[in-house]
């Protein structure tokens, strides 16, 4: 993959901005009715069926331990090799380029798969590494 600015879909979840690589973000949909999953972690809000596929909805704010009260309006669908998932969003900002590779936000847990702070026109955001995060989530607990 060639180095240089990469296009990211930037969205807000609570007061924080997140970004996923545009090529991984397959779709943005309104938050549908969710089906709860037995024994699921708190950040896993539930699942919904989309185009014949069951997609888990992950609350990023809960995932990093900073839950918000805002209503999620949209979900951003992300697809990687192993599967797909959806991230909650209070607002989808749009596609924006992110220069270089910002450092990881943490050494372990979910933050190990987030880079930042990354500069976008709307502010500073955390750039999510979807493959790694899915790997992390599928490990379960």
């Amino acid at each position: 993959m060639a180095e240089g600015p990469r296009g990211h879909l930037v969205f807000a979840c609570g007061g924080s901005l997140y970004a996923v690589p545009a090529e991984r973000a397959s779709e943005v949909v309104n938050l549908p009715v969710l089906t709860r999953v037995p024994g699921a972690a708190p950040h896993l809000l539930g699942v919904f069926a989309h185009r014949g596929e069951v997609l888990p909805v992950i609350d990023l704010a809960r995932l990093i331990g900073k839950p918000v009260d805002e209503i999620f309006k949209r979900v951003v669908l992300v697809r990687v090799g192993k599967g797909a998932m959806a991230f909650t969003a209070t607002k989808v900002i749009g596609v924006a380029p992110i220069e270089g590779a910002p450092p990881r936000l943490g050494e372990s847990g979910a933050l190990a798969f987030m880079h930042g702070p990354a500069r976008v026109p709307a502010g500073e955001c955390a750039a999510i590494e979807p493959e790694g995060l899915l790997e992390y989530l599928s490990r379960g607990r």
Partner: peptide
Amino acid sequence: LLALSAELEGTR
């Protein structure tokens, strides 16, 4: 949403 999807498509 459509526009967003189109933008993503365009980007890809």
